[in-house]
Design a binder for these strands. Structure first.
Length: 578
RNA sequence: GCGCUGGUAGCUCAAUUGGAUAGAGCGACAGACUACGGAUCUGUAGGUUAGGGGUUCGACUCCUCUCCGGCGCGCCA
């Protein structure tokens, strides 16, 4: 849409004595396609010209001369607006035509060429299974990484694992106790969670155990072989389980992306040195801090009074490391908005350290997930592992897959479906869960309900997948190669034009998703595209895609294929199987 | 108290970043398959956009005050 908005602005600019940029910024899409395809509001000219907007619109429209066979077929006054009507054939060529000519390139852009972005996301504490709430950062981050990739950026995905800290000392205590009875106990995220809960049940009020855990962690920090051995087992097994679950959701970090907190242990002293050399480090209540009072923030603690570092220090080190390593143009942290203050402090400290790239770091925050009424009792509740209020992400996926399977069994009409029911249920069920993450803008809190996350109808992932399947099925039934240039002249139906307009907006949706770090915009777009198509499709009395007229059919199937390509691309961005 | 953030139909959310008649899904009700996949589609009901004031030709959108919710505010992450 931006390109024809631009063209309309250029024809209008000299007539209103403004630059094309100014005019372009003012132009809007009319609420109703019959009014035109792109409009210019005349209100702001009223004062200057001492005339009423509708009159200005009429005058302006009269002065516009459109060349025969050009982009626009008409420029007409509609109330206080001057509206342009695009030539459908031209529009079709620029959308479906482009998609069909190079299907692999459709949806991609080179706008981000030469730029590098770091996307840090998911970042769970390991040694326990992922909870549902982890879906937020994980899916948001994975989708954003794909948005940036398709926009031409080089993307580095980082999973800042919580793989260090006294928790590991606690696990070692519990593990060692078990070891006496079960020398070769199996380790996975669920058994680790059991160890964790076991430790806390036993340690409640028992200072000896707490000391023991601290001492195990100290041994780990000092490089004690047994502690390191156990830590490695815990970490490796956790990561293994993590990757299995990620794979189901189409999340794939590169190996270099698994740099958890432990990775930065040996880099923090140097970071602290640099902070000190800048004269930023102060002693406060026994701790070493960077004072941020001038910026109305509490101090950023760099070293605790016992000399240990804290997560702020690790985030500073990781930021330095990432910039050294990748020279990023942008660094995104996909982390819940609880951490808002923390990141403001970190970015400010980086700035004070003299890094001008600090301004390229951005906290992409999102609202928290709470459990809606009915999930744990009658009222809403927040998650709490200790109180047993956890829902594992894996269980959510499994339940959705089960529900999808029932639906597929009910509707299966070919052997192809029944033979692939495992894979299909997985794609649809997981798709439903993943998509539910994109049904609202990220800043809103999410109220988890089974009903919402298992939704297979209406505004849902399966709705889009279903529409894609339907389009694919039509292409199979058609069974012929499309002509290199379909006769778009035959495609003058208003509903068809609306679809071409919609296709022209896909690139804009991706661009906004990038600019706002908001993947939900892609989801909203896809839902609208599907709704438009399905409406036309079900109007079987007036409009059929496959007809007796070969030329007409090939043009209509060209549109079908272009929509299919768009849905496939968009689903891919969001991490759903098509 | 201060900071961030949200408040739109019974419920869950959109709204071209200040434009034209505030739109979808779920739920309710009434409908649509002898032909391209009914996981779909059509229609009806449902709104003082939390509330007041302001700016503007024009406000869900910007400013301001108030109310309600979420999160955060020194050695956990």
């Amino acid at each position: 849409m931006t390109w024809f908005k631009r063209l309309a602005a250029e024809t209008l600019a000299p007539l209103v004595k403004k630059t094309a940029d100014e005019v372009e910024a003012m132009m809007v899409k009319p609420p109703n396609p019959e009014m035109g395809d792109i409009g210019f509001p005349c209100f702001s000219l009223a004062k200057e010209l001492k005339s009423a907007p509708p009159k200005i619109a009429a005058d302006l429209a009269g002065k516009i001369s459109l060349p025969e066979g050009g982009v626009f077929t008409e420029a007409k006054p509609v109330g206080p607006y001057v509206n342009f009507v695009i030539d459908t054939v031209y529009l079709a060529e620029k959308t479906a035509g482009v998609a069909l000519a190079d299907p692999k390139a459709w949806g991609n852009s080179t706008d981000g060429k030469g730029k590098t972005v770091i996307v840090e996301y998911s970042s769970p504490n390991i040694a326990k299974p992922l909870g549902v709430h982890h879906i937020r950062s994980t899916m948001l981050g994975a989708a954003l990484a794909r948005v940036y990739k398709t926009r031409g950026w080089k993307v580095i995905e980082m999973n800042h694992l919580g793989d260090w800290g006294t928790t590991f000392g606690q696990l070692m205590v519990a593990y060692k106790q078990q070891e006496k009875e079960h020398p070769n106990q199996a380790v996975d995220v669920h058994s680790l969670l059991k160890l964790y809960l076991q430790y806390h049940a036993a340690a409640d009020g028992d200072e000896n155990l707490a000391d023991e855990a601290r001492s195990w962690f100290k041994r780990l920090e000092d490089g004690d072989p047994e502690a390191v051995r156990l830590w490695k087992i815990f970490r490796d097994e956790s990561v293994k389980d993590l990757k299995k679950l990620y794979a189901r959701m189409n999340v794939h970090f590169p190996e270099e992306g698994y740099k958890g907190e432990a990775f930065y242990n040996d880099k923090m002293d140097a970071t602290i040195d640099r902070i000190e050399r800048k004269g930023l480090l102060k002693e406060s209540e026994g701790a070493k801090v960077v004072d941020l009072e001038q910026w109305d923030m509490p101090p950023c603690i760099i070293r605790k009074k016992d000399g240990a570092t804290i997560y702020a220090t690790r985030d500073l080190s990781s930021a330095e490391y990432r910039h050294d390593m990748y020279k990023f143009d942008k660094s995104l942290y996909i982390v819940a908005n609880q951490q808002e203050l923390h990141f403001r402090q970190i970015f400010k400290v980086l700035e004070l350290m003299g890094y001008d790239w600090a301004k390229h770091c951005e906290h992409v925050k999102f609202g928290m997930l709470a459990f809606g009424p009915g999930v744990f009792g009658e009222s809403a509740a927040t998650g709490s592992t200790r109180k047993g209020r956890v829902i594992f992400l894996e269980d959510v996926l499994d339940r959705a897959v089960e529900k999808a399977r029932a639906l597929i069994e009910e509707n299966a009409r070919s052997e192809e479906v029944t033979n692939n029911i495992d894979a299909l249920s997985e794609q649809v069920g997981v798709g439903a869960v993943v998509f539910s993450e994109f049904t609202q803008r990220r800043m809103k809190d999410v109220s988890f309900t089974w009903e919402k996350v298992l939704n297979l109808h209406g505004d849902s992932g399966p709705y889009i997948q279903y529409t894609h399947a339907r389009l694919s099925s039509m292409m199979r039934r058609y069974g012929k190669a499309l002509p290199s240039v379909p006769n778009w002249r035959l495609m003058q139906h208003p509903a068809v034009k609306e679809l071409f307009i919609k296709l022209s907006e896909y690139q804009d949706a991706l661009e906004s998703a990038e600019k706002e770090n908001e993947p939900s915009l892609v989801a909203t777009y896809l839902l609208e595209l599907c709704a438009l198509f399905n409406r036309l499709y079900t109007d079987k009395e007036n409009h059929r895609f496959i007809t007796d007229n070969a030329e007409l059919t090939s043009a209509r199937m060209g549109l079908v294929e272009a929509i299919r390509l768009t849905l496939a691309h968009g689903l891919g961005i969001l991490g759903l199987a098509a």
